[in-house]
Amino acid sequence: MKSIILTQTTKFLTPAFVILSLFITYRGHNLPGGGFIGGLMLSTAFALLAVSDGVEKARHALRVSPEFLIAAGLCIALISGLPALLGDDAFMKSLWLPEFSLPLLGKIHLGTPIVFDIGVFMTVAGFTLKVFFSLCREEEN
């Protein structure tokens, strides 16, 4: 089912959703948001693309396979726990870099919880897209 309105709006919405999902993930440590919500938003972007332009197009636009996203996300989440081991601390203890400011973005505060959130973000997006794509493919067959 092709709809010109959907196809045209998707062109604008997909990149907007991707950027918004990244922003939501970043602000999630102390404010509403976070990796899970961000991941869901990212998957919404590509799910929308899959609905409007077909699954193959969406897969192509994603560039990596959803499985790769899951694995990479888990890998990043795992790595985020490791720095604490170097300091002879409990696994997953959160470590932070000193705060600094950037012109456009304002105060930036980086630390291991953000790395963990990015891992969650990728894993959730990968899982949701995997489920969505496999359901779509069944539908097309």
């Binding site: 899982f127 949701t128 489920v131 496999s134 359901l135 069944e138």
Partner: peptide, 12 residues
């Protein structure tokens, strides 16, 4: 996660 999986499984 569970429900997403269950829907895929039941579909299969």
């Amino acid at each position: 996660g569970l429900i997403a999986f269950v829907i895929v499984l039941f579909q299969r």
